[in-house]
Design a protein around this nucleic acid. Sequence first.
DNA 1: ATGTCGAAATCGTTTCGA
Length: 290
Amino acid sequence: MLLVLTERSRNMQIATWNVNSVRTRQEQITDWLIEFRPDVLCLQETKVDDTLFPHEAFTEIGYQVSFHGQKAYNGVALLSLHPIEDLRTGFYGELGKDNEAIRLGEQKRVISGLINEIRVVNLYVPNGSALDSDKYHYKLEWLECLERYLRAAEHRGEPLCVLGDFNVAPEDRDIHSPERLSGGIMASNAERQALKNALGEELEDVFRIFEPDSNHWSWWDYRSGAWDRDRGWRIDQIYLSADLLSLSKSCLIHKKVRGNKQPSDHAPVVVDINWPAEEMSLEDDNDFFN
DNA sequence: ATGTCGAAATCGTTTCGA
């Protein structure tokens, strides 16, 4: 049988999903990939050491896989239909032998790759726990380091897509009860300002280009019946540089997935960019036999 | 604020982190 390579040209779809354990959610992830077939899916909270990452589940359905993880906590991964080039992990990936980059890179929260000439930066920002916690201080330090990391990444001039679980609701319209929650953890002025500083002048939250209203959430706490009461937060975001922003067609939250049996507490967020993406596939060359 | 999860060790219940 003779096979030929064919190219399917289409837009580029890039997604982010905090899956709260890649092993527990493996089947839900592959089901979702088969249904929507995004070009890129960025995972957070994979919660698995690199030696145990279930890469075959994804390579079997056509995705290339890069991961940066650890036992039990954190962990990020890139799944892509296209080659992942110039892989960079941790803050070290941009900042090199910088004391802060090394110290704040011990928790596995950062992975980036060049995919179809777009720099995709996948982040799992620390949660911070509570305003009076050491973890909150760590979160603010981490965001300051991210600021230097992103300026270094921007320096190369690649189209930039920075996405993930930011554990910050950027504005009051991104939380279900601002009168009660604004100013608290994930919604404090210091966190919001630190995130703004990290993003800089150019990167913009693409969801807000299409949707100005509140009541759109990406995360619902497992506790207190938050899902049943639709008490959510929009803490998963996709930020684009100006060149990609002007080509973006939609940004959607796949809320339905949060209603799965044994769901992650987060839903996927997907951006569709009018950027040529060619999926290489093998097909029978029927003409040859005619 | 915490009514639930997932992972790991203290192993079948508790602790931590979210």
